[in-house]
């Protein structure tokens, strides 16, 4: 494999909730070190795409390769070991675990992860609250924790589902700073965002999803030309 091959490639991905067919042939690629944002209205299948990539959604067909490995063949608990860190939309902080237990829960998958000390440097709030129950944290702190626990694993790629949803502007800004820092360190990021202004500051590339499929993709440089179209499709 050459270096130009994408880290993540998804081809003609279909997926179902029981009988309900929600993904209709999703195609996307993410190169090593790139930050890619998926845009799209509510209900178009952004979350489902991420869940199908992780293997949380099992009823799926198509082709998903990550770092040369065929993700379609792996049981759910093997996906993370290929180096993907998933930060779900609902954040998934555990109430019966302390902040620190939440932080160290996901197994380490490579040596490139941050130490707990480095993570507490990056997120001082978590250090202060380390013995509290996970869900006693504010929404913003829970989002930080959901991201932080994936940084410790040494994942090569982060998948984040609407990390700024419902958060105050100052916290959105803080999350933006953290993602910038990660990006500078060479982290590959696949981000689902409704917050267009936030996404435009960190993304290298965008995909637009409509009705369960990716309908167009473009670089951040082409953003100004696409503004009118995006306003119309996204209704912002």
């Amino acid at each position: 494999m050459t270096d130009q091959s994408p880290l993540l490639s998804v081809k003609d991905l279909h997926a179902w909730y029981d009988e309900s067919h929600v993904l209709h042939g999703v195609n996307l690629e993410v190169a090593r070190g790139e930050t890619v944002t998926i845009l799209g209205r509510n209900g178009v299948g952004k979350t489902s795409t991420l869940r199908a990539i992780m293997g949380i959604m099992r009823k799926r067909i198509g082709d998903i390769h990550f770092d040369g490995q065929d993700l379609m063949r792996l049981p759910l608990h093997h996906t993370a070991r290929t180096g993907i860190g998933y930060v779900p939309e609902e954040r998934g902080i555990f109430a019966t675990l302390t902040v620190e237990e939440n932080l160290i829960l996901p197994p380490v998958v490579s040596k490139n992860g941050m130490s707990v000390a480095e993570i507490y440097d990056l997120f001082p709030n978590l250090l202060e609250r380390r013995t509290s129950a996970g869900t006693k944290l504010s929404g913003g702190e829970q989002q930080m924790l959901a991201m932080a626990r994936m940084l410790r694993t040494g994942a090569q790629m982060l998948i984040l589902d609407e990390p700024t949803e419902g958060l105050a502007p100052v916290i959105v800004q803080r999350i933006g700073e953290v993602l910038q820092t990660l990006k500078q360190r060479g982290m590959t990021i696949l981000l689902v965002e409704q917050n267009f202004r936030f996404a435009s500051k960190i993304a290298d590339r965008f995909y637009l999803m409509e009705h369960g499929a990716v309908t167009t993709g473009f670089d951040v440089a082409d953003l100004p030309d696409r503004m009118d179209m995006l306003h119309e499709v996204l209704g912002v």
Binding site: H77, A80, Y86, P88, G92, F94, T96, P106, P107, V109
Partner: peptide, 17 residues
């Protein structure tokens, strides 16, 4: 404890639930 709350998410972290 975590798997009692949300087994699917715990498995997606790489734990053999």
């Amino acid at each position: 404890r975590a798997a009692t709350e949300n087994p699917v998410l715990v498995q997606s972290f790489g734990i053999n639930v």
